[in-house]
Amino acid sequence: MADTQTTTRSLRKPIGDRTLCTLFLLPSLGILAMMVAYPFVSLLINSTYRFSALRNNVEPVFVGTDNFDFLLSDPDLWDRFVFTGQFVVVTVTVQFILAIAVAYYLQRDFKGRDLLFTILMIPMMLSPIVIGFLWRYIFNSEWGLMNFFVTQLGFSAIDWLGVTDNALVAVVIADTWMWTPFVILLAVAAFRGIPVSIQEAATIDGASPFFRFTRLTLPMSAPILGIAFLLRLIDSFKQYDLFFALTGGAPGSTTETVSFYLAKVAFSYFYTGEASALAVIQLVIIIGLSLIFVRLLTRIGRQRQ
């Protein structure tokens, strides 16, 4: 009996590591090729045609780089880029200042720290669309909670969502609410990754807490903070859901981000060719930022070895 079993086992050729590796990678690779690589190539091609997905009976016309020329000379698009840029700069800056202050006090252990930490992480995991509506409710100029506090403090009520600059502040407050936890998470990981003995050595050397923080903690956390910075940059650059729910692009179209504008061109006007071109532009910017991100990541990997 035992003999037969051994024979059958040795007859059946075991799967080699190479084959197994390929089989393991295949499903992920397959779905990513279908959902990322194929669309990207197809977008590149479509961006050189003038056509609309709505009118299938009209033959696409090859227009070369016309779509790009048109987009890049379109002042509307530049306005969207400028607004998106403003939003990105303000929101990321605010989030970093806030997150580093909070993370500084969250890096040491105290009673209830883990619970507090867990609670603080919740917002980044919530549905942006729900968050958008929630803040839209809070920012309502008549019955919103925000103006209730503003008037209680003795100021006059603010028209949060009806004025562009106020709307920007409102979106930044909401986006900061949602994404500061992400920066806190990485900042705490970075701060806690610094060996205790390094901090102790500096304490003994007579360095003040401020001196230690600016000369040791911050420079040594720079790579991970850099990663957090890039991810936040990319994420806020492509922000769509929050604006959709909170401002809807209003007042006018002054709070439309690039993503928002792209959705409009593609699915309201159905200028599919032009939308493809804009999608390509957006992707190129994101890929550029991602490449920096990967470079940072590999540098960290090397440092840790």
């Binding site: 590796c21 669309p39 699915f267 994101i286």
Partner: peptide
């Protein structure tokens, strides 16, 4: 395996992609 670093980057890139950008294509597909 061949181009493992590139594979991991490619995998990671899905996190970066703006949904609206690829949707122009998905809508057609």
């Amino acid at each position: 395996f061949v181009a493992k670093g590139d594979f991991m980057f490619f995998v990671l890139s899905t996190r970066m992609i703006p949904p609206v950008a690829v949707m122009v294509f998905y809508h057609q597909m």
